[in-house]
Design a protein around this nucleic acid. Sequence first.
DNA 1: TGACAAAGTGAACGGCTCTTCATAGATTAT
DNA 2: ATAATCTATGAAGAGCCGTTCACTTTGTCA
Lengths: 207, 207
Amino acid sequence: MAAQPTRRERERQQHRREILAVALDLFSRKGFEKTAMADIAEQAEFAVGTLYKLFEDKNALYRALILDAVERFTQALTAVLTTPGSELERLARYIETKATLFAQNIPTARLYFAQTTGAGFLPTAGLDQEARAIYEKVLSMLEAVFRSGIRKKLIANIDPKMLVLGLEGLSNAFVFELIERPDDLPAETMADLSKTIFFERIHLKGN
Amino acid sequence: MAAQPTRRERERQQHRREILAVALDLFSRKGFEKTAMADIAEQAEFAVGTLYKLFEDKNALYRALILDAVERFTQALTAVLTTPGSELERLARYIETKATLFAQNIPTARLYFAQTTGAGFLPTAGLDQEARAIYEKVLSMLEAVFRSGIRKKLIANIDPKMLVLGLEGLSNAFVFELIERPDDLPAETMADLSKTIFFERIHLKGN
DNA sequence: TGACAAAGTGAACGGCTCTTCATAGATTAT
DNA sequence: ATAATCTATGAAGAGCCGTTCACTTTGTCA
């Protein structure tokens, strides 16, 4: 379809990617505010001015990173949710996918969380809007799965919005742990814990 | 015991409190980095220099706020955990207390979370250390309660550290919601949801 | 009342960071 | 080979912010 892009264009895109990679590294380790454009330029071996040839400004750099991450994660997660199988199976797979996905992309995961979880909290900027909108697609799909499970009497009759909130909170807690102390426990264990706590009862000896 | 403090001292402390109140307001709304000392001074109706007579520097202002908040919350929460009653009852009361406590102190709660949850994530500064240490006392008490519940076969035999992580993640998710959209649902509902999801089974039709 | 101390003030300083732009270099087209 | 176009450079501009300090005002006490 699209004609082979010119060498110039290919190199331009390559440089863009290199800069994004460095920015991801620095933002995820030091945070957005404490990363200076000069830091990124130095580590990427470009001059500051060059960054501004490829990105509008510092926010655009951040946004490119966030949007890419949120889109990739969202795509993978919605894919699992539309997979065949019972509602419970799909939810289980959602949890597993989330755990492995994040475990394999720790720097990206840090950025993702800084946006989605922290967002609304302390407004990180005006940057969240777009990213949050995308993330919310996942949440509404999750909600639909819960709703359908409730209709089929597979799942207790609790406001599905609240079930979403609960499942996200629970699984995020374990993903946080994964991100902060990656060697502590493998991703599967974390996924199993989320599933057990959420779907099995913790409290023995019936009511 | 201590002799009546002089009027000077009382007013000094009053001014200190006024400044702290303004700082809490601004930090919780705009975030630490984006709040300038000049902003605080203006809103508190003092000159910048006066802030520096009462606080070492900007960090000290933040730390005073955080430490006070974390200490108050921690005290209330440890109190409930050492209350008489079964492990399950104590955990239930912990959840309820947490919900009402935070619902009644929303600006403070925002700061608290920015420290405890977000901390370790993107290092907010070196400020967390002390606050985090205090918060971890609550976590280890929670862990002890779980451990004891497991010993008495009241609670499923899952690594208590993980149960703590899960319970915190779950209840924090609801507390977040409470903070972000206070009119959405009352604190008791949030507490009930945490308890139901954590202690009852979501998944019907036992396998 | 007058002198001493404490509290309050805000302009000025220095450091840091984002962003721009005139210049230099490289690549492509003629 | 030469002109034209695109890319890279980094010093300089401009603004913001934390902090200081010489000075003024207010309160205390003899």
